[in-house]
Each structure stands twice: as structure tokens, then as C-alpha cells.
Design a protein around this nucleic acid. Structure first.
Lengths: 231, 231
DNA sequence: CGACGGATTGATCGTGCTCAAATCATGTGG
DNA sequence: CCACATGATTTGAGCACGATCAATCCGTCG
């Protein structure tokens, strides 16, 4: 069921061209409008690779619907997910020639993409565009700095608490969140095993800090308690 | 013996103004020259704070001599060092208004610094400068991404091997490296305790992968072996 | 309804942490 | 120049947290 990134960008793919309007209030949208660029929409099936580590960086992406994981692998298969990309997030933005992580759709996902070359050209003459790219990169760096603290120094329970608060902030609708990713993905994001993640969630459930309606539908019942736990 | 950052920038401090010449082959130098900025040199004593987390980001720094650690703290004192800054490295570059980590001199250290406001103004009109800032930020992001993999997924021995190769690359002179930082700093960088770092180094010494001449003077005797260990 | 992947729970193990003591290096004052 | 003080490093013993291995349980989709 894996659609390769190569196939993904073939002309045969079901693609929609959209001119980005000023209604897009996000940074990416703003930057694209400045650049006068045209974005293409494309969809990936669950678990499809969007691009691979060390592949030439030809496009920059923004999640429209769905969710994406960006990760690095060690030679024996150990995986570290550096970030989850949710609707509105920009990913795949590189300064060098290649992607430094692999990106995969977690669930069926639609992205907007713009040619990196076009962006480069626009950036060459427009300060605002480069400025926008700098701000987006800085945002990623800030997240990475926070995540290093989590990975290097937080306990399992603290990591899970931090994760829940992050996801609550980023994708809660009406006080409830629908996690797109499985326990293994969460573990690989937090530097834990899926079993440890599951145990931490069960414990929080027992303590009535959260409620489940299905393993991936979570409602936080005591955010303050969670904030206290995240160290 | 701590010199505060505030005192550091007082007019009474022993400061040298230098106009950056085109001889500075580094990126920072190049950017500064573009901007027509004047850098000030300043020195910090061992363990002096250069700036604190959440402090307004007034300056951008480059290490001239010495070494700097950038870190985050948890409320109970657990510390994660995100990066070591060695001669030539730029640090303290922010997009937002405040510093996101604390920076301290590891040993007596001299830095060049430029006013952030001046840099901002130059960046507002010159694409090359923003471009340079973007490249430096991207470099930090790449390091953070690699370090997340280390912190989340590597074993203690793999972390120490990675660290030795990084320091060898960055500060080896004549096949030998003089580490400026103590075992605790290394541990807080690698997400380990100082004892675990010490044990790993002792084991590598036994296996003749490295030699000591003083705890912080290390010579790598088998880089390939180290590369194999780093996963 | 059945099958399959995902999640939970349990039992045991091991890596790296904690606590503690000894040793080493460094610099200071007599 | 040496003796000592001090902090850094090493080494040891025991422990704990999270990993591993394994067996259900559950929910979702054909």
C-alpha cells in the first residue's frame, strides 16, 4: 500500500492546482503569496513515504488534512521521530540539497506543495520570503530544543504528560483529541517503547486525568495535574 | 567568580571594538561584513553566564577563544545541554524576542558580539544577510535533529562514541583533542550521568580505542572502531 | 462474523542510575 | 619546591526504571 514519493509526483497522479489566496492566514500561505507561487495539492495513503532521508529536496510541503511523521533511522531499525506534522504545519523545508529526515503519511493525508526551486528564486530577491523561511526554521529549532530536553532528561511519565499537552494544544477540538498515530509512533517520538507509553496512559486513566473513547480518542480531564507532571 | 551578563556589557568592561574585515572566512564574519556592522570583543570567566533563558535577546555572539554550553533546566535542576559552542561558532541567534536557552562560558572565553537590533535592521533590506541567518539556523536545526536521535535511541556507549567523533571533528589539533568540558557537562549533553560517561571512556581506554594524557586530553587511536560503535 | 492489527497487561531482565568511597589532577600558600 | 586542599574523575555495589518477551484483549474493517 506504499505509494512512493516518485510515483506521487508523476503527472498521472490526481492533482489539483490552487492559487494561494490572501485568505490563508498562516505563515506558509503568506510566504507563498509574497512569492506569487502556485501550490499543488496531493494526497498520500496511510503509511506512504512522502520523501526519504538523503533524497534531493525538490518540494516544500504543508499539511492540509491528515498527519505526517518525520524520522531518522539507525542501521538496526531503531527509529526516532523528530516531529509530527499536523494540518497547517510546513515540513520538508531544507537549506541544503537533501532531506535530513524521512517523511511518511500517518493516515490518509493531503498536502500542498511548492517547488523548492521556485521558492529559492523568489527568496533570492524578496527579503520577506527569506524572513518567513527563517521564522519557520526557527520554529522547528525551538521544538527540537524542547524535545531534546524531554528525550535527555524527562521520565517516562513526564514525557507522556508533555506529549498529551502538546497534542491537546495542537489538535484538540471541543475538548477532545483524536490521535492519528499509534502507540509505536508515540513511543518513537518520546524515546520510549510502545508498552511504556501504554502503561503511562493506563495509569493516567486510572487517576482520572484522562478519559478514553477508543484508544486514540482522548479527553483530558485535568490539564493542571498533567502540567504538574511534565516537570 | 561569576560575572553576570549585565555587568559584562557595562561600559566599564574591558572591551575592544573591531571592524570585521573580509579576512573572516566564516559565515558570521561574511554576514557581518555585508551588514557593515561593528563587532565588540568581550571575555567571560569560567562558569560566567553569558545570557539566561527567557532573557531579552540583545546580542548575537561568536566564540573567538574558549567554549560555551547552551542548556535548558527543569524545575528540579535536571539539565540538558543542547550544544557546545567552540571557536568560530555563532550562538544566541534568535527569531523571537528572548533567548530560549542559557549560555555559560565553560572555560575563560572570548566572544565577538553584535547588537541584535543592528542585525535586524541590516537584515530588513539585505537578502544575503537574512539568507546567512537562515543558513546558520538550519545548521543548528540539523545538529538538533541528529542529537534527538542520539538522546532518544542510542545506548550509552553509542552516545559517547558519537560525542568523541564530534569533538574530534570540531577541535582536534594534531590528532589530539583537549576537551574544555567536565564529565558532568558531557553527561548532560548526552542524557547520561557523569559516572556512565566515565565508565564508557574507561572501557574505550581498556580496548585501546583511545588514549589519555590527563582526563581531558584524549587521542583517538581507532576512529573506525568508534564509527562502528556509534550505530 | 471472523480475522487481523493495535493495544493492554503481566513477568522478568538488564542498562544505566544512585549512593559511596577511593584516587587523581591542579593549583595555592608556606 | 613541596605539602596540602580542593574539585574532578574513577571505580564499586546495589537498585530501579523502562525494556523485553509473551499472552490476552479489543476494535475495526472486510
Amino acid at each position: 500500500m506504499i505509494t512512493s514519493a516518485t510515483a506521487a509526483h508523476s503527472t498521472a497522479a490526481p492533482v489539483t492546482n490552487v492559487v494561494l489566496g490572501p485568505d490563508t492566514g498562516d505563515q506558509f500561505g503568506a510566504v507563498m503569496v509574497q512569492a506569487g507561487l502556485v501550490a499543488t495539492e496531493f494526497s498520500y495513503k496511510k503509511d506512504a513515504e512522502i520523501y526519504g532521508e538523503e533524497e534531493p529536496a525538490e518540494y516544500v510541503y504543508q499539511v492540509v488534512r491528515g498527519a505526517v511523521r518525520s524520522y531518522k533511522l539507525l542501521s538496526d531499525g531503531r527509529r526516532q521521530i523528530g516531529a509530527f506534522h499536523l494540518p497547517g504545519d510546513v515540513f520538508g523545508l531544507e537549506s541544503g540539497p537533501v532531506h535530513r529526515l524521512t517523511a511518511e503519511a500517518i493516515i490518509d493525508t493531503t498536502v500542498r506543495l511548492v517547488k523548492r526551486r521556485a521558492l529559492e528564486q523568489a527568496a533570492a530577491t524578496d527579503v520577506h520570503i527569506v524572513r518567513g523561511l527563517l521564522n519557520m526554521t526557527t520554529g522547528s529549532l525551538k521544538h527540537a530544543e524542547d524535545h531534546m530536553l524531554l528525550l535527555g532528561r524527562k521520565t517516562a511519565m513526564e514525557r507522556v504528560a508533555t506529549f498529551l499537552l502538546e497534542m491537546d494544544r495542537r489538535l484538540a477540538v471541543a475538548g477532545m483529541m483524536a490521535l492519528p498515530m499509534c502507540r509505536r509512533d508515540i513511543g518513537d517520538y518520546l524515546g520510549l517503547t510502545l508498552e511504556t507509553v501504554s502503561r503511562a496512559l493506563s495509569q493516567l486513566h486510572e487517576q482520572e486525568v484522562l478519559g478514553f473513547s477508543g484508544a486514540r480518542q482522548i479527553v483530558l480531564r485535568n490539564r493542571q495535574r498533567l502540567r504538574n507532571m511534565d516537570a
